[in-house]
């Protein structure tokens, strides 16, 4: 089974661009246009890594990541924001327990490397400690 990555951003162009940039990476890419849509996806399928924008209408990135950290702690969480503030960064770290914090514009290769490392870490975890995978 391929690894799955969920990109969350309210700007479709950003999602399109990232999808193109990451199309050769060894994981499946899913996108969501809002926090609500992302939660919907997460509930339907296993997602290994979530990359979320911070500022979105409705549920913000911070809220979303905090929710994921609680509901799907095994999903690795990352931030990709165009408006980095100390306040949101602290919240992302403390409540969202994020793996990486990126600011726009970011080089997709760095993002891809981070995602792959996260996926490798996940595999290592799975191998060393046999996790119950949620269904």
């Amino acid at each position: 089974m391929n690894h799955t990555v969920l990109l969350v951003d309210d700007d479709a162009n950003v999602l399109h661009g990232l999808t193109r940039a990451l199309r050769h990476q060894p994981f499946d890419i899913f996108t969501a246009r809002s926090g609500e849509e992302a939660i919907d996806v997460l509930k339907r399928r296993r997602i290994h890594v979530v990359v979320a924008d911070e500022q979105m209408p409705g549920i913000t990135g911070g809220d979303l990541l905090a929710w994921i950290a609680e509901q799907f702690p095994e999903t690795t969480r990352m931030v990709l924001t165009g408006h980095p503030t100390a306040e949101t960064a602290i919240r992302a770290i403390n409540e969202g327990l994020v793996y990486r914090y990126f600011t726009k514009p970011c080089n997709p290769i760095e993002l891809a490397v981070a995602i792959r490392r996260a996926l490798e870490d996940l595999q290592t975890d799975t191998l060393t400690a046999s996790h119950d995978s949620p269904t």
Partner: peptide, 10 residues
């Protein structure tokens, strides 16, 4: 930054 992100990507 947001358009710059996808302009770069694209």
């Amino acid at each position: 930054n947001t358009p710059t992100q996808f302009i770069g990507d694209n």
